[in-house]
Design a protein around this nucleic acid. Structure first.
Lengths: 148, 148
DNA sequence: TTGAAATTGAAATTCATTTTCAATTCGATG
DNA sequence: CATCGAATTGAAAATGAATTTCAATTTCAA
């Protein structure tokens, strides 16, 4: 009879391990939540989902783990045009940065990748001599379904 | 002997007047501060500057006036990558949207206009059928002086 | 002039996030 | 295996920005 298994390490977990970061049970739980999220989650949603797995995860630990991941460049923090309060949303950092569109009508978030976006960042880097660490492009407006 | 003059109405003031918005002394004061700002100001900076003119302007009125201007699309709200807390910064909405770069080293904010940026927004509007109301592109990184 | 609607300020409240600090856990070393 | 110091944790308190509440005041149109 197999013992309850620790979650198989995903990308975030192995990245942190590789950097010599201590992997506590709480951190593993939070990382798993972020790994498997299908939408952009805010801190309290991450807390709720983490607690469903291990009830003893604290809100502070969620915030601290998010800060850790940000520091290591493994997640991106989004504002999504502050559609509902000032909270932040999080997503795994992907190979290619993308644009987030939030619909004022239905609240859905659409993601979009564009060569033009990459090109624009290159232009800025060159023309402004600016060494980009994070690029965030967020739009507010109406999606196809909600437009008047 | 001329009476102390009410500030000459600027763009924001006349825009609001044209829309039938009541122009109180407090609002005029706050608008004048935003009109004449040389940098991006946050709410408490706007309050401080407004109070230097009329001591009886309240913090709440600043927030309410900012919300009013946002609602009328006359100002833009910026996060500037949350370099110092979660406060927002404000600027008059200009004819042409531009990009904001915040230097992680010295904190300076650089503005940049780009045809590529305009083109990218058009691409999004067309390809995603998304009717853009606000576009915000903010970058964090190192300016020419601060880069390693 | 009058009365309804808009605006205001002051205090209290909300909400997300951060700090503090004592207790616990981890993991390298003896 | 024991131990010691550093890292991590949780619970409570604190912070900081922004918002709500509500009574008093101002404004404007009739």
């Amino acid at each position: 009879m197999p013992l309850p298994q620790t979650e198989a390490p995903g990308y975030l977990t192995s990245q942190l391990a590789a950097r010599g970061v201590r992997l506590t049970r709480q951190r593993r739980t939070i990382l798993a939540v972020i790994e498997t999220a299908k939408r952009h989650l805010d801190a309290s949603q991450i807390l709720r989902k983490a607690r469903a797995v291990h009830a003893d995860v604290d809100r502070v630990t969620v915030y601290r783990t998010l800060a850790l991941l940000k520091r290591h460049g493994l997640i991106d923090e989004l504002d999504l045009m502050h559609m509902e309060g000032e909270k932040h949303f999080y997503e795994r950092r992907t190979q290619r940065e993308h644009i987030h569109m939030t619909c004022i009508g239905c609240g859905q978030v659409i993601e979009f990748e564009s060569r033009l976006f990459d090109k624009l960042k290159k232009q800025i880097a060159t023309e402004c001599q600016f060494h980009i660490k994070v690029a965030r492009m967020e739009l507010g407006g109406y999606c196809a379904k909600c437009r008047a």
